[in-house]
Amino acid sequence: MAGLEDLYREIILDHYRSPRNRGELASPPAYRVEGFNPLCGDEIVVTFEIEGEAVSDIKIGGSGCSISQSSASLMSAAVKGKTVPEVRDLIHTFKGMMSIHESTLPGAGEDGEAADPAEPGPPDIEELGELAALQGVVKFPVRIKCATLGWNTLAQGLDEADAAGSAP
């Protein structure tokens, strides 16, 4: 049985207690997206700005459990300053980490989180740095949705930004 220490790594608790990039950017000009976890009522508000190629600023609002909040906090630190394609790659890699195990777990894969079958192969977890601390979440299938909430919300925001024609 997976132990609590697999889930609540020190980095996660640190980001939960002192979340980075907390708050909301004025929108507009920032893009603003809300995400909900219908299971537990967690809500997340991601606001971000795009300058040229890059996600120049990002803030996280809303409230939720330690996993959703720390994952969003870690995400905000990781994506700030990266170009939009780099951010999309990172989202892909992160969700890959959350789904490779998930797809081998019973009852998994019905929620569209499973890895894209067109792109098999394990994600490069090395590349994730601190984010790899969230790896243990896959041992607690119910919590995967918490960990991916912020990421799905940001992905949706990037799509909306794309559609609005401002993203490269």
Binding site: G3, L4, L7, C40, C65, S66, I67, Q69, F140, R143
Partner: peptide
């Protein structure tokens, strides 16, 4: 402590 985290720990 968020209820989700609480419930997780109680489960242990």
């Amino acid at each position: 402590v968020h209820p989700h985290d609480l419930s997780q720990i109680l489960d242990q």
